[in-house]
């Protein structure tokens, strides 16, 4: 397998009951790059990235076929250590979801559940993660305050810091900026730019400018199908498929 590929998806199909939400998707996600998923609402973007860290397990009545190869094994297999998988492939959600705990406890949550108890080590992890998430300067003097008192943008960066604290390889981000104002959004985008040096990032967005700004590769989904997958420049400027062209030029969606 190509050394530059982090996750390789082959012939992935997914059904919610009788409804097929993903249709035979094959895609190779490059390592240490930002890959954007675009497409109209309901085309299966969220469903797709949830498959990558097995979060669809929480939904009843789901049936999946195909393969998702990560680190040389099909993570859809029953014997996958889901806990370890989710530690390595973390997710940031559309709506910021900090726990109703202090800022410190939010970031320390992951390390704690993974067995780190040493106070000093936790302090270092918390500070390091908040710095990476570009939040440290704003919250360093109020780590014991409730995370729910932060602004929406700060909350989302806290959620990213919380994820970084468990040292994942891959970050899945489902429209991380869609609930935020433009300034908070640009902060998140700057952050992505920093983070992609260390992490493989997959970001769902329906904001095409955002995809163009942050992603090296972009995939266009439509009605559960992967229509086109190319470098971001190619996809936006030289789309091969008529439907992609219609979408990126704003003719529908």
């Amino acid at each position: 397998m190509d050394d530059n590929v982090e996750i390789s998806v082959k012939n992935l199909s997914l059904w919610f009951g009788k409804f097929q939400a993903l249709k035979n998707i094959s895609i190779a996600i490059p390592k240490n790059e930002v890959t954007a998923l675009i497409g109209p609402s309901g085309c299966g973007k969220s469903t797709f990235i949830k498959t990558l860290d097995r979060m669809n397990d929480l939904v009843d009545n789901v049936r999946i076929t195909g393969e998702v190869i990560y680190k040389g094994r099909n993570i859809l297999d029953d014997d996958t250590d889901v806990v370890q998988l989710r530690k390595e492939i973390g997710m940031v959600f559309q709506k910021p979801n900090p726990f109703p705990k202090s800022i410190y406890d939010n970031v320390a949550y992951g390390p704690r559940v993974h067995g780190i108890k040493d106070r000093k080590a936790l302090n270092d992890i918390v500070e390091g993660s908040l710095r990476k998430a570009a939040l440290w300067d704003e919250v360093s003097d109020r780590l014991n305050e409730s995370a729910l008192r932060l602004s929406g943008g700060q909350q989302q960066r806290l959620c990213i810091a919380r994820l970084l604290a468990v040292e994942p390889n891959v970050l899945l981000m489902d429209e991380p900026a869609s609930a935020l104002d433009p300034i908070a959004t640009s902060k998140i985008e700057d952050l992505l730019y920093e983070l992609k040096r260390e992490y493989t990032i997959i970001i769902v967005t329906h904001n095409m400018q955002q995809a163009a700004r942050v992603a090296t590769h972009t995939a266009f989904f439509l009605l559960g199908e992967l229509i086109e997958y190319a470098s971001t420049i190619d996809l936006f400027e030289r789309p091969r498929d008529k439907r992609t062209e219609d979408y990126v030029t704003g003719k529908f969606g």
Partner: peptide
């Protein structure tokens, strides 16, 4: 979801 997505059991 936030907790599970971080690898908590």
């Amino acid at each position: 979801e936030g907790s599970l997505a971080m690898g908590a059991t």
